[in-house]
Amino acid sequence: MRIKAFSVIAGAAAVLALAFPGDALALNDHTPEWDKVWMHLLIDVGVIGAIFLVVSIYFLLAYTRKSEDEVGKLKQMSFGNSLAWALIPAFIFMADDFYLAAQGWKLWNDQRRVPEGAYEIQVTGRMWGWDFAYPNGVISSSDVEYDDSGKVTGIDGDGLVVAQGKPVVLRMSSTDVVHSFFIPDFRIKEDLMPGRITYLWFNPKDAGKHVYTCTEYCGIDHSRMYGNVTILPQAEFDAWLASQDEG
């Protein structure tokens, strides 16, 4: 792994400058890639952590005080040793940092580079619900309902409905305070602000339901600002959109 790390560092500039092909991106789903980078990272920090921990525990157990007048025997280091103990760790940490940065680089590009022709839905966050405006003018909302005791009873509205297999780009803004749109299953989130536009995109590969929720503190019902992303096969999606238009 170290060898790989160093080779990556050697070509760091080249790697960072490398443009990934746009077409391949369009078909990429963030989730598996995110999970892969995450595993790499866990192994990486796990190794570092284990080394430090084993050394610490060994020292803590091996160097207990043997007699009352015993003193520590750590010697003043020579200038060369001292410098080596600064530069070598610094170099290893930097190498690892850049290795990790390179690991996350492709994922970051996937996450931020919206594929051409993605289906665009306008998202508006408000205290405390979501509105999704479709290209044909249909607006689908989601508002969480709860009873007097505060217990959630259901969600009013269909929320975000998208067609399976077609990249979706969300163009987001807020009417009041800062919110944040988060779909845990798709590993993406971005804030919504009044007066600014932000983007988020994902590729809904399989039909199904996933939670989206607000992750920027926005007041009393912050935790009740969620709904479901429903992914439908194209035909069903078209039917849904048409039914919304009539209503």
Partner: peptide, 20 residues
Amino acid sequence: LGGLTGIPLAMTSLTLHLAE
């Protein structure tokens, strides 16, 4: 534990999921 769990949070790509 605290320091090493900060490393994924330094990475933009992982933080897009982990933030908040």
